[in-house]
């Protein structure tokens, strides 16, 4: 699959920058681009931010996921406590990061 020039990967590894994640995703949508977001390691704590559910809705189910192993490592229950806005199918592995690289023409890490 070749990368979509109108798709923006946002790879989130810091738990400190939810405003940037939301700000960039919203700006991308406004510009007619599709954000695709993956949260990994300690950034998964951002799933508890009240802005997360709206972000998940903005991206759509195929274009936002979190690392299930990271979520479990940080003490959350990846079966019984799926973050608001996500479904079980969006609890993914690092392969989703690979998908970001494959599918998105542009990329930013936060």
């Amino acid at each position: 699959m070749s990368a979509d020039p109108n798709k923006l990967a946002i790879f989130v590894t810091s738990p400190q920058h939810m405003r940037h994640v939301v700000g960039i995703a919203e700006a991308a949508k406004k510009a007619g681009k599709q954000p695709m977001v993956f949260f990994t390691y300690k950034s998964i704590h951002l799933t508890k931010d009240p802005r997360f559910e709206a972000l998940a809705d903005l991206c759509g189910k195929d274009d936002i996921a979190i690392c299930a192993d990271s979520y479990t490592c940080e003490g959350y229950d990846s079966a019984e406590d799926i973050p608001a806005g996500l479904s079980a199918g969006q609890m993914r592995t690092q392969a989703f990061h690979g998908a970001l690289l494959d599918e998105c023409g542009k990329y930013i890490a936060l």
Binding site: L8, S14, H20, I24, A27, K30, K33, K106, Y107, I108
Partner: peptide
């Protein structure tokens, strides 16, 4: 208050973006 619209414009104009800590 970063101008996220401008940032997205710059990302799409660039071949590569590096976002430092």
């Amino acid at each position: 208050a970063p101008d996220y619209d401008q940032l997205v414009e710059k990302i799409f104009a660039a071949d590569q973006t590096v976002c430092w800590w």
